[in-house]
């Protein structure tokens, strides 16, 4: 178990970099939201990786003594997942509203439209 060190965290960092790239480079607002969601999931993976205990099992108590993983990150991330979906819904509703006001969901077209008026 010791030999793999912090490889999990390196992969999480790579996922975060890809997600940030999507958020900045995408000109389409829905794709930006997808990027935000990927960033969010990578933060979840980081937390759950911290809570993993080698040779442990899920934190549901058994009759016989056992090694359990840390339940606290699980609780925090449970809350975060649900809040994340709520914010995603709000963001998508904003996009629908932008589309009905500007007729486009391309951020630079919206910007040009604002500057023209």
């Amino acid at each position: 178990m010791e030999s793999i060190g912090i490889v999990n965290y390196w992969i999480v960092i790579a996922l975060m970099m890809i997600a940030l790239y999507i958020v900045i480079s995408a000109n389409n607002l829905i794709k930006k939201i997808i990027g935000l969601n990927i960033f969010q999931s990578s933060v979840f993976i980081l937390y759950i990786s911290i809570g993993k205990v080698g040779g442990g099992t899920a934190p549901i108590l058994l009759k016989e003594p056992a090694v359990y993983s840390n339940p606290l990150p699980h609780v925090l991330i449970l809350t975060a997942i649900v809040v994340g979906v709520a914010t995603t819904a709000l963001g998508l509703a904003l996009i629908v509203r932008i589309r009905s006001a500007f007729g486009t969901i391309d951020d630079q077209d919206v910007q040009q439209d604002i500057e023209r008026n």
Partner: peptide, 9 residues
């Protein structure tokens, strides 16, 4: 990673 409740959600 042993987080079954999180996986459900």
């Amino acid at each position: 990673l042993d987080a079954v409740d999180v996986a459900f959600t």
